[in-house]
């Protein structure tokens, strides 16, 4: 799994709240059997008109190399369980998303793909929204987000954090637990 320790980059701001996974990647692009190449569909219907031409949405003018932190309104990633959403955001060039809250399944999916969801206070979000393209440091080792003179601590579920810091694969840990799993199944009867 891809590791994440610290990231210093400029922000890109999407002020909307409740950005759902259908906005992040519309369902008609889910007919893929791979994980790769989804960047071009990221926010597709915001970035392209119905005629297929690029719109003048700010996403089309963002600097994909320099703006790797997405700052978005409350409840980012609500909606479906599609892991294609974090795959698309990563491929588009984001390594972290900062918001006041996240859809549960989106958060869990993002953490498994090296896309760090950073949950901040409404005050911090407002500051970040007011100054787009701010240089921000997200430090997972110290659990801090820093910009200018501003510092805020954020929480990341302990196990997911460990996996990210060490680039450790959670499946390996589950496989190590197979004896316990088998013992459980025996206790519980045939479980079928």
């Amino acid at each position: 799994m891809e590791a994440f320790r610290t990231l210093t980059s400029r922000t890109f701001v999407l002020p909307q709240s409740n950005i759902d996974t259908d906005q992040i990647i519309p369902a008609r692009f889910l007919t893929t059997t791979g994980r790769e190449g989804l960047g071009k569909y990221c926010f597709h219907d915001w970035r392209y008109g119905q005629d297929g031409e690029k719109t003048d949405h700010p996403l089309n003018h963002s600097d994909r190399e320099a703006e790797r932190i997405l700052v978005a309104g409350d409840n980012f990633g609500c909606g479906s369980s599609r892991e294609h959403a974090p795959w698309a955001l990563k491929a588009f060039g984001f390594d972290a998303v900062v918001s006041t809250s996240f859809g549960d399944i989106f958060r869990s999916n993002a953490l498994k793909n090296g896309l760090l969801p950073v949950q901040v206070s409404p005050e911090t979000l407002t500051l970040l929204m007011e100054q787009p393209a701010t240089e921000v440091t997200i430090d997972l080792e110290d659990n801090e987000i820093r910009f200018g003179n501003h510092v805020e601590r954020f929480e990341t579920e302990a196990f997911a954090r460990l996996c990210l810091l060490e680039g450790k694969d959670p499946l390996g840990v589950l496989l190590d637990a197979l004896p316990e799993i088998e013992a459980f199944e025996q206790r519980a009867g045939s479980m079928s």
């Binding site: 399944i105 499946l171 589950l174 197979l178």
Partner: peptide
């Protein structure tokens, strides 16, 4: 609902975190 990585976890172990 779970994501695809977790689908893999369940396929491989019948369990998830």
């Amino acid at each position: 609902g779970i994501g695809t990585t977790e689908v893999g976890h369940v396929l491989a172990t019948q369990c998830l975190f």
